[in-house]
Design a protein around this nucleic acid. Structure first.
Length: 421
RNA sequence: GUGGGUGUAGCUCAGUUGGUUAGAGCACCUGGUUGUGGCCCAGGAGGCCGUGGGUUCGAUCCCCAUCACUCACCCCA
């Protein structure tokens, strides 16, 4: 029995990888246009980094992390999200000194030991963006506008839901009001009973219908924001309006990580089964300091690349593999030998070139050229070889022309390359 | 961690009320065209019918177990 990949770990094979390249390319372009700079950070970190940032009692930390002992016994964890490692790097390299306002992004794999399902893997990939050093509400609006623009540029449609979770000043009061309210309900579902203890905010997210019926009257976090948070949220909404970004306020939206403050948001689709969020994020004003860095505010988000790729594929908007520039069909050993050299010289000209090395029939080689979606095919058989010429066939128009061959291969190929381009 | 569904060719799937050589489409190879791709036609190759056990004269089919995949819950990008 051959060895197979781990559960929840997937290969991205030729034919699929073009979609991923399209996503990355598009995202990078837009991120750069907003002044975001790419950073590459390790996949392995000390476990305590994630415990401190994500929260000791979150599901991610409690039961989903790939955590194991290193050979020297220290506890390591494969990153379950991108924010903590990027902030760690930001602090460790004192990036705030040169850039008081620092916009960073990273693209790569994350790991969570969950049961795989549609749009959810154990190794999954995120575009993770962090904007540090500014708590201006327009920064929030700009960040969300940027996320929306990436989606839009990919040709996809999602809706933006926003909320504010308040700050350490106003959240306790809301927590109490919420707990008091929940106390008045006597038929909570089992999940909500559990959530009441672990993270009361989450009950609002329950999918149970009878629970949702109760929560219609639940106190809203938005009614309990302190003056500062309230005005911040208003300014965020105004910023989105100014940039003409559509959104809906969803006061029930809660995030799974403990570090969020004030603005949170999700990019939602209905086309992915139960995994409706293709991107999500929020503000985390206390996090950098909590991780031992300067007291700078921050806001960020993660986008799930698997989910973007699925949406592109299912909507037929995934890019196709593009064809090569030239296929070389040579017949007979002498022509094969000459073409072997031409092939390499054409590649030096920067073209994508393929040739058959198995001396197959012309018919077969033409078939290969067709399959490779070659723009042109260069044909050299015994006749052409003897007469010092080649046949160049335009595969789309089927027009063929004779081209005289000269022994100055480098120059000859340069000429040929201009014909092809 | 919990529940449902599905395992037959590289892929997507038929099928056998339990019976001798298990099928199709796509993809692949060869030929029809002694040197010209896509369309068409013909042929070919490719299967321990997920694995182990049970029932039976006989199991790909029925039963049990197991593994894998998948969808959903939980949670989350």
């Amino acid at each position: 029995m051959a060895v197979k990949a781990l559960k929840g770990f997937k290969d991205i094979i030729p034919g699929e990888v073009e979609t991923w390249q399209f996503i990355e390319h598009t995202a990078r372009e837009i991120l750069h246009s907003f002044g975001c700079e790419e950073i590459k950070v390790p996949i392995l970190e000390k476990t305590k980094l994630f415990k401190r940032s994500i929260g000791e009692t979150t599901d991610i930390v409690e039961k989903e992390m790939y955590t194991f002992a290193d050979r020297n016994g220290s506890s390591l964890t494969m990153r379950p999200e991108g924010t903590a490692p990027v902030l760690r790097a930001y602090i460790e390299n004192s990036l705030h000194v040169a850039k008081p306002i620092c916009k960073l992004f990273t693209i790569g794999p994350m790991f969570r030991h969950e049961r795989p399902q549609k749009g959810r893997l154990r190794q999954f990939h995120q575009i993770s963006v962090e904007m540090l050093g500014l708590d201006h509400p327009r920064q929030d609006a700009e960040l969300m506008a940027m996320a929306a623009l990436i989606i839009q540029r990919l040709g996809l449609t999602v809706s933006l839901e926003i909320n504010s979770l308040g700050c350490p000043k106003c959240r306790p009061a809301f927590n109490k009001a919420l707990l008091d309210f929940i106390g008045t309900i006597d038929d909570l579902c089992d999940d909500c009973l559990r959530r009441r203890e672990s993270n009361p905010l989450r009950v609002l997210d329950c999918k149970n219908e009878t629970c949702q019926e109760h929560y219609k009257d639940a106190p809203s976090i938005l009614d309990h924001l302190c003056a500062d948070c309230d005005s911040h949220f208003s300014e965020v909404k105004k910023g989105l309006d100014l940039l003409e970004v559509n959104y809906v306020v969803n006061s029930f939206m809660v995030r799974g990580l403990d570090y969020y403050t004030r603005t949170t948001f999700e990019l939602i689709t209905n086309d992915l089964g139960s995994q409706s969020a293709v991107g999500a994020g929020g503000r985390y004003d206390g996090l950098v300091k909590q991780l031992g860095g300067p007291a700078v505010p921050g806001i960020g988000f993660g986008m799930g690349m698997e989910r973007l790729a699925l949406l592109l594929q299912e909507s037929g908007k995934a890019p196709q593999a593009k064809g090569i520039d030239l296929f070389i069909a040579a017949l007979g050993d002498a022509a094969q030998e000459r073409c072997f050299v031409i092939c390499q010289a054409m590649r030096r000209q920067g073209l994508q070139v393929a040739m058959d090395l198995q001396d197959r029939s012309l018919k077969n080689q033409m078939k290969q050229a067709g399959k490779a979606k070659a723009s042109y095919t260069l044909i050299m058989g015994e006749d052409e070889l003897a007469q010092n010429r080649v046949v160049l066939r335009n595969m789309e128009t089927r027009e063929q022309q004779d081209i005289t061959f000269t022994n100055d291969i480098e120059n000859w190929c340069r000429e040929l390359a201009t014909v092809i381009n």
